[in-house]
Design a protein around this nucleic acid. Structure first.
Length: 416
RNA sequence: GUGAGUGUAGCUCAAUGGUUAGAGCACUGGACUGUGGCUCCAGGUGUUGGGGGUUCGAGUCCCCUCACUCACCCCA
C-alpha cells in the first residue's frame, strides 16, 4: 500500500463512529444539565502556554510535545491537553467578569509524541470539563457525580472511582520533604527509574510498579497525613459530599498527578477492561493556575475523559449500534428506475431513510442487499406496478407484504 | 527513548526447507428468467510487509529495514 496513516493516529468510521456519536451526545446532554456550556478552543497554541502550565520538567513537556516553528519562526505546539488552552481563553476573554462559576466542556483531539500501545495514541480525543470560580468541595463532589451520571448513562457501572488530595502550595513541600527523608536511606535499593524519580519527582515513587519498590515504600508517609488544616478540611468535606451523593469511592493516597498544576482534590476513574492504561477519566483541582497565568486568583477544577479508552470499554459490551435504512427501493427497468428516484426523494423529504438500487441488478440481489442493510421495508417498482399504478411493499421483519397506490406511498403508515 | 512479540487473500488463519501458497468467513452471480434470510454451485485477487543473504530449492533459515501489537517510562 502506498500511503498509510501516521503512527499512533487512526481513522474513524462505521460502526465505531456511532459509539463516538452516542458518547458525544450524552456528554452534551448530561453536562448541560449541570450548567456546563460547550467551548471550542484552537488545537494549536504558543508553546510556552503548555510549558508554563504543565510544568517544564514533566515528561509531556520534555519529550512528548509536537512542537514546531511556524513561518514567522514562532514556536507552536499541538495541544497535548485541554486545560491550558481553556485557561488561556478564560483569561484572554475576561470570562471571570461573568457570573461565577463559569463552567465549560469541550471535546477534540490532543497530541502527544509517544510510542502507541493499548489505550494510548499520538492523536487521541478527550472530552474535558472545567469549572472556574468556586473553591468549595461541594463542587468537586458535584463534578464527580456528573462524571458518574455520564458513565451510567452509557451503561457503565463497574468502574472504580479513586480520590486523593495532594495538598496545596503550603503543605505539599512539607510532604515532599518527609518523603525524601523517608527514602533517603533506601535509594540504593530503588529501581533505576525510582532513583531518577527520587531527585526529580519523589511523589512518583509512590506509583512505581516494580515489586521491590512497592515493598520499600511500605510505611512511607502518606500525603493525607501532611495536609494543612485548610486542605484537610477541604478533603473531608469533599468526602462527606460524596457520601451524601452515594458515590462509592476509594482513597488512593498513592495517586499522584503528572501535571504540575494540580492542587488538593485529584481523582481517577479506572476500568479493568483496559490494558495497562486503565484510566478512563482523570482530573482534579488547579486553584493556582489562573492566577499564575496572569488572571485574577480563581479556584478551578476539571477532568478529562479519554475517548478511545471509553469507546474501547463500550465496544466490549458488544452493544452494536448501527443505522439501517427504513426502506430499500428495488426497481426493475429504466422507467421504474426513474419513478423510484422521485419516490425516494419524496420519502426522504419526510425524513424517511431510503436506499436505492443501482446498476441493473436483479430483484433477487436487490432483496438480498436490503436484507443485509437490515432495512425494514422493500418497495418494489417494475413494469407491472407502473402499469397498474400500485406498487408492492414488503416488510422484511415479519415477511408481510401488500400493495399501495403509487401516490399514497408517502403516507404509508409502516414507515412512520 | 527501552524491551518483547507478530507480519501470508478484504477479514480470521493454515502450509515438515521441496510441484502451481490453501481453507473458512465476507463479497458478486446463479440454481429460483419479479421476492431477502436456509441450502447448493460458480467466480478471484496474493509482489507471503520491503530489501539483501544462505541453499539445487526460502512463506519457512540468517541479516537489515518498515509496519503493527503489547509492555516499560509517562499518561486520558
Amino acid at each position: 500500500m502506498k500511503y498509510s496513516a501516521l503512527k499512533g493516529v487512526h481513522d474513524l468510521f462505521p460502526p465505531d463512529i456511532y459509539i463516538w456519536q452516542k458518547v458525544e451526545s450524552i456528554a452534551d446532554e448530561v453536562f448541560s444539565a449541570y450548567g456546563f456550556h460547550e467551548l471550542r478552543v484552537p488545537i494549536i497554541e504558543s508553546t510556552d502556554i503548555f510549558v508554563r502550565s504543565i510544568g517544564e520538567t514533566t515528561d509531556i513537556v520534555e519529550k512528548e510535545m509536537y512542537t514546531f516553528p511556524d513561518k514567522a519562526n514562532r514556536s507552536i505546539t499541538l495541544r497535548p491537553e485541554g486545560t491550558a488552552p481553556v485557561v488561556r481563553c478564560y483569561i484572554e476573554n475576561h470570562l471571570y467578569n461573568q457570573p461565577s462559576p463559569q463552567k465549560f466542556f469541550y471535546s477534540g483531539p490532543m497530541f502527544r509524541y509517544e510510542r502507541p500501545q493499548k489505550g494510548r495514541f499520538r492523536q487521541f480525543y478527550q472530552i474535558g470539563v472545567e469549572a472556574f470560580g468556586v473553591p468549595e468541595p461541594k463542587l468537586d463532589a458535584e463534578i464527580l457525580s456528573m462524571l458518574k451520571l455520564f458513565l451510567e448513562r452509557l451503561g457503565l457501572k463497574e468502574l472504580s472511582f479513586e480520590v486523593n488530595s495532594i495538598g496545596c502550595e503550603k503543605c505539599r513541600p512539607d510532604y515532599k520533604k518527609a518523603l525524601i527523608d523517608f527514602f533517603a536511606s533506601k535509594t540504593v535499593n530503588l529501581c533505576p527509574d525510582c532513583k531518577r524519580r527520587y531527585t526529580q519527582n519523589p511523589l512518583r515513587i509512590l506509583d512505581c510498579k516494580v515489586d521491590s519498590c512497592i515493598e520499600l515504600r511500605a510505611g512511607a508517609p502518606q500525603v493525607t497525613n501532611y495536609l494543612c488544616n485548610e486542605c484537610k478540611e477541604h478533603f473531608e468535606e469533599f468526602q462527606s459530599s460524596l457520601k451524601l451523593l452515594n458515590i462509592s469511592y476509594i482513597i488512593n493516597p498513592n495517586m499522584v498527578r503528572g501535571l504540575d498544576y494540580y492542587t488538593r482534590t485529584t481523582f481517577e476513574v479506572t476500568s479493568e477492561h483496559l490494558g495497562a492504561q486503565k484510566a478512563v477519566a482523570a482530573g482534579g483541582r488547579y486553584d493556582r493556575l489562573v492566577e499564575e497565568f496572569g488572571g485574577p486568583p480563581t479556584p478551578a477544577i476539571g477532568f478529562a475523559i479519554g475517548m478511545e479508552r471509553l469507546v474501547e470499554i463500550l465496544k466490549n459490551k458488544s452493544e452494536t449500534l448501527e443505522t439501517s435504512p427504513k426502506v430499500v427501493l428495488a426497481t426493475i427497468g429504466k422507467e421504474a428506475d426513474k419513478e423510484g428516484l422521485s419516490i425516494a426523494e419524496k420519502l426522504r423529504a419526510k425524513g424517511i431513510s431510503v436506499e436505492l438500487g443501482y446498476g441493473n441488478s436483479s430483484l433477487k440481489s436487490q432483496m438480498r442487499r436490503a436484507d443485509r442493510l437490515k432495512a425494514d421495508y422493500v418497495v418494489i417498482i417494475g413494469d407491472d406496478e407502473l402499469k397498474s399504478g400500485r406498487i408492492k411493499w414488503k416488510n422484511l421483519k415479519d415477511g408481510s407484504q401488500g400493495e399501495i397506490g403509487i401516490w399514497e406511498i408517502e403516507g404509508f403508515k409502516g414507515f412512520y
